[in-house]
Design a protein around this nucleic acid. Structure first.
Lengths: 116, 116
DNA sequence: CACGCATATTCTCGTGCAGGTATATACCGG
DNA sequence: CCGGTATATACCTGCACGAGAATATGCGTG
């Protein structure tokens, strides 16, 4: 299983993660709430655990799983370079105003070339 | 191709997206910079386009591709419920200080540890 | 209009992986 | 120890999808 991204490509795994986001749960609880066969749950949990998305604590016969932050941080970090494409959208007004400001200060725009 | 997440599970597609994050590019430019066979580039671009990650503008015979924000926003939104698990990490300083407070109150610490 | 470049599509093939079933291990109470 | 419950692993099978090669489409230029 290659990357962090391949892990969360699987819908059932995302379902498990979303469940664990609200609170930690045992395998049986996940099995019941997601109506998913137990071996399937265990297998997905294994994948998630080996990728660092979750960790397990042993409570008698139960194994209680909970979220670990690192892989999510990695995804968040990957997202960073793309944020500029929609942060403009979100506070488009603010940025627009900033632009207006800039234009005031540089009134005559000479043929400036963009370098990429 | 099911979800947004399945799309970015593919390393080559992420490479293409990262390239486009800095600036828009033609198919040939991508092909050259990533040293990837042209049909492969086109096929991945098709997948990315149909999933809304990119859009293309026609410039003579070239097709110039650029990022579209929506799918990234979707991923960002998915990440939200998990943020609380590492926002704690971010203010690790605060936690660390809290710990230091605790240690003052529990004076006898045997093991000398190098600072981790 | 034909040539050539840029990009897209089609096909086949191999394989990684998820689903399902069966079975193994672990742990608890009596 | 034993039965029962909780979880993990093993094995098989099917299929989706990426790689690669060949070919098709589109478009500007002489």
């Amino acid at each position: 299983m290659e990357s962090t991204f391949a892990i969360i490509a699987e819908p059932n795994r995302r379902a498990i993660l979303s469940l664990l986001a609200s609170s930690e749960r045992s395998v049986g609880e996940i099995e019941h709430q997601l109506q998913m066969p137990q071996p399937s749950v265990s297998k997905h949990l294994r994948v998630l655990r080996e990728a660092g998305f979750v960790e397990s604590r042993t409570d008698a016969q139960r194994r209680v799983y909970r979220i670990r932050p690192e892989p999510f941080m990695e995804i968040d970090a990957w997202l960073v370079p793309f944020r500029r494409f929609w942060s403009r959208h979100v506070d488009a007004l603010e940025r627009h105003l900033d632009r207006m400001e800039q234009m005031k200060k540089v009134p005559s725009v000479k043929g400036k070339k963009r370098h990429d």
